[in-house]
Design a protein around this nucleic acid. Structure first.
Length: 651
RNA sequence: GCGCCCGUAGCUCAAUGGAUAGAGCGUUGCCCUCCGAAGGCAAAGGCUACUGGUUCGAGCCCAGUCGGGCGCACCA
């Protein structure tokens, strides 16, 4: 629904339709018109009515339009095209209510249910790369949008500290470098970068040699059992890399409530409990024959009945697959497992953003009730994992029912690949025919998250230095950080989730056009207008009060300048709808586009020298122009916050 | 082989089944005597891969064809 803060308008339209045609429309679709001259809002409802009552759409529209004119808030209604009803709003009244909505938003109705979002979940064995950045920015923004629509959200980051990737790095330290735990501890280079290179070297070293690969398996086994020096080394590596990941993500203003460690899932025997439950409910069966003889499998029926698949959950040697462990973990998230972790405060916990970790050691006091479960769980994982995610969902369905399965959501997104140019810069050998190039962690090729952020900051510092050489280095650095974060977050969000992002360094470093800095700049400029107006001795408060006058606004909106301001207001009024759409369709890119449209409308308005606040011809005009700028700043600051895009004081 | 995703301007992407398919980049012109030009204005650029179908209406839904990507382990 458009203009949520004017939902009463929609209900009055519904009532008018009911009175005129005796039909009760459920959802009333409100659209924008192709051009502002055609109207402020478009109602296609005559097409629906035509089907229902068997009359021509245009005829219905013509009958209904005059009746809508009497609805308060609607100034005029016209019939257009084959049966659209275009509404012209009472702009003055609309602006007054928009103003109070923006400056004093009504308290959001808090939803009773709790939502879990799991994102980031990077293997703790090397530095984060751009693919991880997409995951984390997507997840973090979705958290912000859920919160804005009234959900209580717990953000979790899953740490696979007992996986093969950690094992590989351990093999590297032990076999390639012959380092003890003490010596690894003593490494004072950037540890996540160090491991990034080591990890690549290990894969070169493995080659096709079976006995070397056997070391990987043995090491994995050791860290899973939590025994011996390899396990101790693994614990150190994982913990240290996790701190590095937290620091990287903190640069992008991304945080978490809880870190769940795979090792704790093992030690709390989550799987054993899940196995019992799955057997009890006959959700999995023991295969007596066929390919999967001796395994416990989950049968998944195809939606269209085209034969059923089955997925092995427990191998014939009695060990559980990754998917099996994932089902157990998912059941815990939903509060359906009947087991819980113990929790300790993480070293990186800060008072303003407490961070907890699962633990198998001593529990700390004061942990939130993480184990209470959520009715809705979003797992932010790349689309390559769609199949295993579907298996997990099927397992949840078999064990906890369709409702729990419906609450198990895979927030999937496509991968990030490198453009040819960027791949070449990084030393890839790129063949002429091929297009984009896949990142390969095993070969140590890819763009590290921190390197990317560093490059963005450096670029921003240069921009600022050329634009404003007088700026103090400290201020410059701070603004550069904000610009870098804004650029990166916007870049990662602007594509829809199922779109492969071809990462090109030059494109990502762009600060012009549809980018985060464009939005930041619009707010910075608007703020500087407000500051200038105040510094020149104008009473901002009094001017804003003066602007809230319907007759004054009515006159203003009748001018071409008013049209320009009005299109900005209409765009801003659509924010509630944009948030709702972004959450419902699970597509944060809706929000970046919305923010851009608003910023664009503002740029179009304020850039015109004839619309100057300072040089306004009359106090009335000054007042109204100031209101436009003021509302834009308030509102766009909030929207930028939803996207995690900081607004620097100056750029 | 089966399943999923993608194919829209030179490039990168938008477009809850609705009106003349929109942005950004790039290209070509303008605009700092103007609240900072990370900006604004304008122009050029499209048989929405193809063929059928569904309906008042299809870039979007359905069937098929052709291209491209990714899944479909007793790996994690």
């Amino acid at each position: 629904m458009i203009l949520a803060f004017q939902s009463d308008l929609v209900s009055r339209i519904r009532q008018t339709v009911a009175e005129a045609f005796g039909v009760n429309l459920g959802e009333i679709l409100v659209q924008t018109t192709p051009r502002l001259e055609l109207g402020d809002m478009a109602l296609p409802l005559a097409f629906d009515l035509a089907r229902k009552i068997g009359r021509k759409p245009r005829e219905i529209a013509q009958e209904l339009a005059p009746k809508l004119t009497s609805v308060s808030g609607i100034a005029r209604a016209e019939v257009a095209g084959g049966g659209f009803i275009n509404l012209f709003l009472d702009r003055g009244a609309f602006t007054v209510s928009l103003s109070s909505f923006i400056t004093a938003p009504p308290a959001k109705e808090q939803r009773p249910d709790r939502v879990i979002v799991e994102h980031t979940s990077i293997n703790p064995n090397k530095a984060a790369h751009i693919g991880h950045v997409r995951n984390s920015i997507l997840g973090d923004t979705f958290v912000r949008l859920l919160q804005a629509s009234g959900h209580e959200v717990l953000t979790q980051n899953y740490i696979d500290d007992t996986g093969v990737q950690v094992a590989d790095v351990i093999v590297g330290f032990e076999q390639l470098e012959g380092k003890s735990l003490e010596e690894v501890r003593a490494i004072d280079a950037r540890f996540d970068y160090y491991c990034w290179d080591l990890y690549a070297r290990v894969f070169e070293w493995y080659g096709d040699l079976k006995d070397r690969k056997a070391l990987q398996a043995a090491t994995l086994h050791a860290i899973e059992k939590h025994e011996g020096p390899a396990a101790e080394l693994g614990e150190h590596v994982a913990a240290r890399i996790v701190r590095a990941h937290l620091a990287t993500m903190a640069r992008l203003d991304i945080g978490y409530d809880l870190l769940v460690r795979e090792s704790d899932i093992l030690r709390q025997h989550f799987w054993a409990r899940a196995f019992e439950l799955l057997k009890d409910r006959k959700a999995i069966v023991f295969e007596q024959e066929g390919k999967a003889r001796g395994c416990w499998v989950l049968r998944m029926e195809d939606a269209d009945g085209g034969g059923d698949e089955s997925k092995i959950i427990v191998r014939s040697n009695g060990t559980v697959t990754y998917t099996g462990k994932d089902i157990a973990y998912q059941l815990w998230k939903l509060g359906k497992l009947g087991l819980d972790f113990r929790y300790r405060r993480h070293e990186e916990s800060r008072p303003e953003r407490p961070l907890w970790s699962s633990t198998s050691g001593e529990a700390d006091e004061g942990a939130p009730a993480f184990g209470a479960g959520a009715s809705l769980v979003f797992n932010v994982i790349d689309v390559g994992q769609s199949y295993p995610q579907r298996v997990v969902k099927a397992g949840v369905a078999a064990l906890a029912g369709p409702e729990a399965a419906a609450g198990t959501r895979h927030l999937g997104y496509e991968k990030v690949v490198l453009s040819k140019a960027t791949a070449r810069e990084l030393g890839y050998e790129v063949d002429e025919e091929g297009g984009a190039v896949k990142v390969s962690g095993r070969r140590g090729l890819g763009v590290k998250a921190d390197d990317l952020i560093d490059a963005l900051e450096a670029k921003a510092r240069n921009e600022i230095a050329t634009r404003d050489p007088e700026r103090l280095p400290g201020e410059r650095a701070k603004a550069a950080r904000d610009v870098a974060v804004g650029a990166l977050r916007y870049f990662m969000l602007r594509f829809s989730r199922n779109r492969i992002i071809t990462f090109d360094m030059e494109e990502a470093l762009a600060f012009t056009g549809e980018t985060g800095p464009y939005i930041q700049n619009s707010v910075v400029r608007a703020r500087s207008i407000l500051a200038k107006v105040a510094s020149e001795g104008h009473d901002v408060g009094a001017l804003l009060g003066r602007a809230h006058d319907r007759d004054l606004l009515k006159t203003f909106f009748a001018t071409p300048e008013g049209d320009s301001a009005w299109s900005l207001f209409l765009a801003m009024a659509r924010t509630e709808e944009a948030i709702e759409t972004a959450v419902r369709t699970e597509e944060p890119s809706v929000m970046t586009r919305h923010a851009f449209q608003i910023a664009q409308a503002f740029h179009g308005y304020y850039q015109n020298p004839a619309h100057s606040v300072l040089r306004a011809e009359t106090e009335d005009l000054r007042a109204v122009r100031l209101l436009v700028v003021h509302l834009f700043v308030r509102h766009t600051t909030d929207i930028a916050g939803l996207l995690g895009i900081p607004i620097p004081d100056r750029m």
